[in-house]
């Protein structure tokens, strides 16, 4: 699914708060982030380090984002570039795409959308041949048909259960709190206690025939984590 070494994203953005959440969020999703606050330092980083994608703000203190983009394109690089801007005018969007940006996102953007765009750009650039199937041991999950099978046998899951299993299989060994699972699978604005997560997890375990020692383990006082079978013993 992923290359052994992490995907490197160069973030050129002058606002410290935006840089902070981009770094934290992207690192959490498994990317490596190189933050730079000026166009100049961003270009230096691009020349010195092999990165896989650039997130570029239009308004930079020194050179503006369009110029940074044009400079990179003029030097023959086909690196995927995602531009961030506040302006909504069509002319700006056209200008951004003309200068060679691959995609465009208007502030304030949703982080989830940013992730989707990043995945799309990486796929298009051939950096990642993201498999539409996640496979861990005898467990197989098809992201397109949303079908799950264990040892070749189909298991029927509700969308919530499917979401939980996808998350676990994407990030094996990561410990998720009930809060995080709730937010990521049922949405940020879901009203209700975190107990609902336990209910869904228990249904999921039953359907998968998951018995102790569990694939999906309860981490006492924290939440849940997914351990593939080879490490479970």
């Amino acid at each position: 699914m992923k290359n052994d070494d992490k995907i490197k994203i160069l973030v050129i953005e002058d606002d410290p708060v935006i840089t902070e959440f981009l770094s934290t969020g992207l690192k959490y999703e498994g990317y490596e982030v190189l933050p730079r606050i000026t166009g100049k330092s961003g270009l230096d980083a691009w020349q010195q380090i092999r990165v896989d994608l650039i997130i570029l703000d239009v308004m930079l203190p020194d050179i503006d984002g369009f110029e940074v983009c044009r400079y990179i394109r003029d030097h023959g690089s086909e690196l995927p570039i995602l531009m961030l801007t506040v302006r909504k005018e069509v002319s700006d969007r056209v200008k951004g795409l003309d200068s060679g940006a691959d995609d465009y996102l208007t502030k304030p953007f949703s982080f989830e959308e940013l992730l989707a765009r990043i995945r799309a750009l990486l796929r298009r650039g051939g950096k990642v041949t993201e498999n539409s199937r996640l496979r861990v041991e005898n467990l197989e999950l098809d992201l397109e048909t949303r079908e799950v099978s264990r040892s070749g046998e189909r298991v029927a899951l509700t969308p919530t259960e499917f979401g939980l299993l996808e998350l676990f299989m994407r990030y094996p060994h990561r410990v998720f709190t009930r809060e995080t699972l709730l937010n990521r699978v049922l949405g940020y604005d879901f009203d209700g206690g975190t107990n609902i997560v336990d209910v869904h997890i228990s249904h999921l375990r039953n359907k998968l025939g998951d018995r102790p020692p569990h694939l999906i383990r309860t981490i006492y006082a924290v939440g849940y984590a997914f351990y593939p079978e080879e490490t479970s013993g």
Binding site: E20, G25, P108, F109, T180, N183, R184
Partner: peptide, 20 residues
């Protein structure tokens, strides 16, 4: 928009798991 971007993004990242 700029501060709102920072706020929204930070909150989203927190909710998605950084809160752990």
């Amino acid at each position: 928009m700029t501060p709102l971007t920072g706020l929204r993004g930070s909150l989203e990242v927190l909710l998605r798991g950084a809160q752990d």
